[in-house]
């Protein structure tokens, strides 16, 4: 017997029994599994580095580039840019890659409740996207102090910051959930980025994420209020400019974001695809040979 086999044999001997007894055993609770899944997905996102590099790096570059100009930067727009690009394109491309690599299929075969997997993935992305948004706001504080925006009333208080985090979470969830539903229709990793960006840029441009387009037709600016970017900017701006007595967040904007979150989640539940497209195609080709 080889050393390898001897080591393995002793491991088997140590493991009291590889096959469990048939008596009923209790499965780990879903809450514990969901938390573990969120932690795992956050680690994956952080350790790859790309999510934070894109989600926080690009907006901070825009902030630095706008320093010294006559107009103060639109911090809310930049924060939403970082958040949405993380929750939409970074997340979507990673999800398609995981599906086409068979990672999702492998998870599907485990005792993890299926909703735990993709909810954990969406929530983890939302947390990292909010972190990216928070880095942008923090950078704005460093560059412009607590008074940023276009007037003396735009001061960031602790309560306003909490309100911003809450609405960013809802917004990030809405973007990631909608991306989850859409990725089911994207067949390859190569197609993922162009498809997602092709949808993303028109939405953020009409929503005034990066700049305000004053010549926009009325119908387009009305449409933008129903998309998930402009309400997010409005809500963040509202929280920053909060005046005493008024609600910290605009109700209509929060409702729009909540609708996108619920609709995206529903779409994700109905459309979510675990199996790689390529395996189905390959199998059909093999049989036809």
């Amino acid at each position: 017997m080889t050393d390898t086999a001897t080591t393995a044999a002793s491991a088997v001997a140590d493991a009291t029994n590889l096959v469990p007894s048939t008596k009923a055993v209790r499965l780990p609770g879903a809450g514990k599994l969901l938390l573990a899944q969120i932690r795992y997905q956050v680690r994956l996102l952080i350790s790859s580095g790309r999510a934070i590099a894109v989600g926080a790096g690009l907006p901070v570059i825009l902030l630095v580039a706008s320093k010294g100009k006559d107009t103060r930067p639109d911090v809310a727009g930049y924060a939403v840019f970082g958040l949405t690009i993380t929750a939409w394109s970074t997340y979507g491309v990673r999800l398609v890659a995981a599906r086409e690599d068979g990672v999702l299929k492998r998870w599907r075969a485990t005792p993890l409740p299926r909703w735990c997997y993709f909810l954990g993935r969406i929530l983890a992305t939302a947390l990292v996207a909010v972190l990216a948004g928070a880095v942008t706001v923090a950078a704005a504080l460093v560059f412009y102090g607590s008074h940023f925006g276009d007037g003396p009333d735009t001061q960031l208080t602790v309560t306003a910051a909490l309100a911003i985090v809450a609405v960013l979470l809802v917004g990030a969830f809405a973007w990631a959930a909608t991306a989850t539903a859409l990725t089911s229709a994207i067949p390859t990793v190569e197609a993922a980025f162009p498809t997602l960006i092709f949808i993303y840029f028109p939405v953020i441009i009409v929503s005034g994420v990066l700049f305000t387009n004053l010549s926009e037709p009325h119908w387009l600016s009305t449409l933008a209020t129903y998309l998930p970017a402009q309400p997010l900017i409005d809500a963040v701006t509202h929280a920053v400019r909060h005046t005493s007595g008024a609600p910290f967040l605009p109700v209509r904007d929060v409702i729009v974001l909540a609708c996108w979150a619920a609709g995206g989640l529903l779409g994700a539940i109905v459309l979510f695809r675990w199996e790689p497209h390529r395996s189905t195609q390959r199998r059909a080709a093999r049989i036809q040979q």
Binding site: V25, P28, K32, R43, L44, S47, A98, G102
Partner: peptide, 25 residues
């Protein structure tokens, strides 16, 4: 599965620990 299907970023021990946590025993 027929092809390897693992996230590349975690260590071997962390990956196994994560999957171990899904099972009762």
């Amino acid at each position: 599965l027929q092809s390897t299907s693992l996230d590349a970023e975690l260590t071997v021990a962390d990956t196994l620990g994560l999957f171990a946590g899904l099972y009762p025993v």
